[in-house]
Every structure is written in structure tokens, then in C-alpha cells.
Amino acid sequence: MAAHVSLQKPAGKQRRIRILMAKPGLDGHDRGALVLCRAFRDAGMEVIYSGLLVTPEQVARIAVEEDVDVVALSLLNGAHMTAFPAVAKALRKTGASDIMIVGGGIIPDEDKRILEKEGITGNFGPGTPLKTIIGHIADRVEKKRHRKR
């Protein structure tokens, strides 16, 4: 679990990963989202939680205001195909398409492919180990920061 360790000791001046955990829709199932908030924090990230019942537009606004690297979206209500791309669109609209989006929930394979095309990666299903999710986020941030340098 290399990613996990390197996160807790950020190299040099590199800032810690700032992540917004969000549930963009009518979905009160926040058990997973709350577990992830704590897991991200324990992995050394700075975590902001959107709270419940936010709209995709509100998620994008919080992401920009909080200057996050990543937005992590969680929905278990089957609305991911509407809500996740809506967040991507709202971020593009505010000129913040550099903010990465990762998703999770009950997402069938055929939906995953479509979401990937929108730049929404991960799309982790139930039972995914936390380290897989954290590793995926760390990798994406690392690659992007590397490209910028």
C-alpha cells in the first residue's frame, strides 16, 4: 500500500490532497460516504464533506470555493448517470475542469464506460477496499501534478 504511506508523509512542499466528498442527489445513504471521509483523512488528505441533498451545481461551487484537487461522488440511488455527469458539466461551466472527479456507488459496468468518457473514474462498487480507492485517487493526483511540473 505504497500510496497510503506516501500520502501521510507528503514529499517536500507538495500540498496535501484536498478532496470534496459529495452526494449530489436525493440520497440519504451516507454510511459509505462518512466512512470514506474518515478514511481519506486518516490517509492524510484534507477532507470537505458536502452534506446531504446538494445539487450537482452546489457540488461544483463548493469544489471551486474550497479549491479541491478531487471531487469524490457517492450515490446509491441509481441516479449516477444523471448526477455525476451533471457535476462534471457544472465544473466545466465554472472553468474548473482541472478538478478531478471520482465516483462510487452501485454502478453497472456499462455505466462505468460512459462515466469514464466524462472523465469520472474509479466508479467503485460495494465492497471495494478503502486502500484501492485511496490508491486510485493518489495516483491520479500524482500523475497530474507530475504533468504540471
Partner: peptide, 22 residues
Amino acid sequence: DMPTLYGYDADHERAKGEVGRC
């Protein structure tokens, strides 16, 4: 479904993508 549980009609903006799903 979620819109019903939250008291929104199917034609409400917030119901988009959620009608009949849960």
C-alpha cells in the same frame, strides 16, 4: 422512489434521473 420519499413530484428539477429508480 427518492422523489416521493423527499416529497417532490416527478416533474421537479430535483427528481431528474431519480424517478422510479429506488
